[in-house]
């Protein structure tokens, strides 16, 4: 649905986004992560045909940014970092303006639909200036959806919201995915990205890494099993080390942290071997790394990790072209 190739934006000699190549599949939620000033908003603006790329190309729903901008704008809905609502106008008036600008055929029906869906119907005639931040954010979402776009660009949609409202907005975004919309989600909230996104791209002007959170986790940290025993003896340690599929083993008190390439296949063999040497196993779990750990490592090691689009991404991007 969205393909970019070597997309670059330079403002007054300062590179905001450099050589961004990615492919966002139809119906997926794609997370764009990165520190402040990493180029996330610039990327969103290019994809919304608000600013033109300095070089490279972006194609959205078959339309090329810079050449078919009007078609792209009809296809895309955007939630900007600030809700950007007309505060003296009512919720209904705000939505009506956008529905008309997008050329929606039945304005009243669409406006009513989204005011109901986002639970704003009871406040439809109140000035938006009287709304809470969460309500404004919901209205901004409704505004982005009023013309039923196939692509949604969400720039920090839960920024500054309380946990309860964050959950409401997040659940709504998850529901949108179920409707087959393609969603690009820019966020600083790594927990949100983990919960919502099928794949993530870490951007720091240049793209640093692109994959599913799970795949990135494996690529960065490998897969490690934590075996908690009643006691760790030299014999047990020795036995683990002799297993040819064990990549690494470390002892942390009564725990063994064992790096494996394929835990699903190797765990039963490992457990049998441990039991054979008299190990009393209390727990066996896979070590989990949060997306935050992945993100921080990627940002810290920027430039040192060639984890740009996976082979499957590259193949799909090239076939799309």
């Amino acid at each position: 649905m969205i393909t970019t190739r070597e997309l670059t934006k330079v403002y007054d000699g300062k590179v905001a986004v450099e050589a961004l190549t990615m492919e966002i599949r139809s119906g997926e939620i794609f997370g764009l992560l990165g520190p402040n000033g990493a180029g996330k908003t610039t990327t969103v603006r290019m994809l919304a045909a608000l600013i033109s790329p300095t070089s490279g190309e972006a194609v959205i729903g078959g339309y090329r940014v810079g050449e078919q901008n009007a078609a792209i704008r009809r296809l895309v809905g955007i939630v900007t970092e600030a809700p950007g609502l007309y505060e003296r106008l009512s919720a209904r008036e705000n939505l009506e303006i956008y529905a008309k600008l997008y050329g929606v055929s039945n304005v009243a029906r669409q406006v009513e639909k989204y005011l109901h869906l986002l639970e704003l119907w009871d406040r439809r005639d109140d000035p938006v200036g009287t709304f809470s931040k969460g309500m404004k954010q919901k209205l901004a979402l409704a505004r982005a959806l009023v013309h039923e776009p196939r692509v949604l660009l969400l720039d920090e949609p839960t920024s500054g919201l309380d946990p309860q409202m964050t959950k409401v907005v997040r659940d709504f975004i998850a529901d949108l995915k179920g409707q087959g919309r393609t969603i690009l989600l820019c966020t600083h909230n790594l927990d949100e990205a983990e919960r919502l996104c099928d794949r993530i791209l870490v951007l720091k002007t240049r793209p640093i890494a692109l994959d599913t959170p799970q795949a990135l986790r494996r690529r960065l940290f490998g897969r490690r099993i934590i075996v908690t025993l009643e006691a760790v003896t030299d014999r047990i340690l020795e036995r683990v080390r002799t297993l040819d599929f064990v990549l690494d083993v470390q002892q942390e008190d009564r725990r063994l942290v064992i790096a494996l390439s394929d835990p699903e296949r190797q765990n039963p063999i490992l457990v049998r071997a441990l039991v054979e040497v008299g190990a009393a196993i209390r727990f066996l779990t896979e070590e989990e790394h949060s997306l935050e750990e992945i993100y921080l490592r990627l940002i810290e090691e920027e430039g040192g990790m060639p984890v740009l689009p996976s082979a499957s991404d590259r193949a799909e991007a090239s076939s799309a072209r």
Binding site: L50, A70, Y86, L101
Partner: peptide, 13 residues
């Protein structure tokens, strides 16, 4: 000031 231009400019206007 109200940052309303960006969503407005994102429409086909």
């Amino acid at each position: 000031q109200n940052r309303t231009l960006e969503p407005l400019l994102a429409t086909p206007i």
